[in-house]
Amino acid sequence: MTAALDVKGLTTRFETRAGHVTAVNDVSFAVQPGRIMGLVGESGSGKSVTGFSILGLIDAPGEVSAGAVLIDGIDLRQLSDEDLRKMRGRKVAMVFQDPMMTLNPVLRVGDQMAMAVRVHRPMSKPDALDHARKALEVVGIPSPAERLKAYPHQLSGGMRQRVAIAMALLHSPSVIIADEATTALDVSIQGQILAEVRELADTTGAAIVWITHDLAVVSSLADDICVMYAGRIVERGTAEQVIGGPRHPYTQGLLDSIPALHEPGRKLPQIPGSTPQLSRLPEGCPFRPRCPRATDLCRTEPPLDVRDEQAVLCHHPLERA
């Protein structure tokens, strides 16, 4: 089976006063149709920039400087701007944290959805509206025909995010990238949307990249997990492997610091220090200054250690029986 999304050696740099900053550093992963890949990391780890880079949404002073992004075998980086524009929304779509970034506040929901339909597929407006209504139904919006006539401000936050997801679904894209799409929502609404996203992947066969800082969300939603730190993917594997048996000390540290896994009131194991600034990364492994397993060897570039389908970028990965 060919991957719906195959990212190879993706590297994105930003020109800053402090020199080149590599926000995404040689990132590679693949997502099969119908699977959900959780891209987890803390703020500044490069997870959002990875999402933007896949869609070619990086503007100066940033640039995607290396790598390939294959969607159904087509390399987006080789396409002209015009061809890339035709891919966006049709083959690959993105859902952002704030649905008001996606929705135009002065247009009715139906009008802007119909517009999005007709950009890629010539059809009459009533047909496009009908198509939009079906998309709203898929994401569980009650009385979708009425919602089409509403303006975004008349909808609740959860409804707006559903509309944004419905817009991403309009052309049944092969790949959907969701960047912190439920972070701003209440837990009960988040639960509803996560259940629908899972069903979407299972029924439509879309490959979904779910970018989040929330390990709990990823652990219950995703099939595969990539953990990012300082622009690199430091660990990659199935959800069971990464959550159940992390091999990178950073992943282990992240999981350890989740309160739910400890007896109430006990001191939480914490990762010392804070996330490094990308302009001042230590040489070798970027996690070295905070890592309990670091040795002098870690001053050199860490190797990729692959076991089964679990890959880890570390000199001293944790051994699992």
């Binding site: 837990v187 009960s188 509803q192 996560l194 709990a216 652990s219 219950s220 939603l221 959550i243």
Partner: peptide, 24 residues
């Protein structure tokens, strides 16, 4: 009860959300 059920937790396995119906 519903709040507890809809909260994703680490290690509960895939796709188990007993979401609360409707909106606040």
């Amino acid at each position: 009860q519903a709040l507890f059920a809809s909260i994703p937790t680490v290690g509960t396995g895939r796709g188990r959300f007993e979401a609360i119906k409707g909106e606040i």
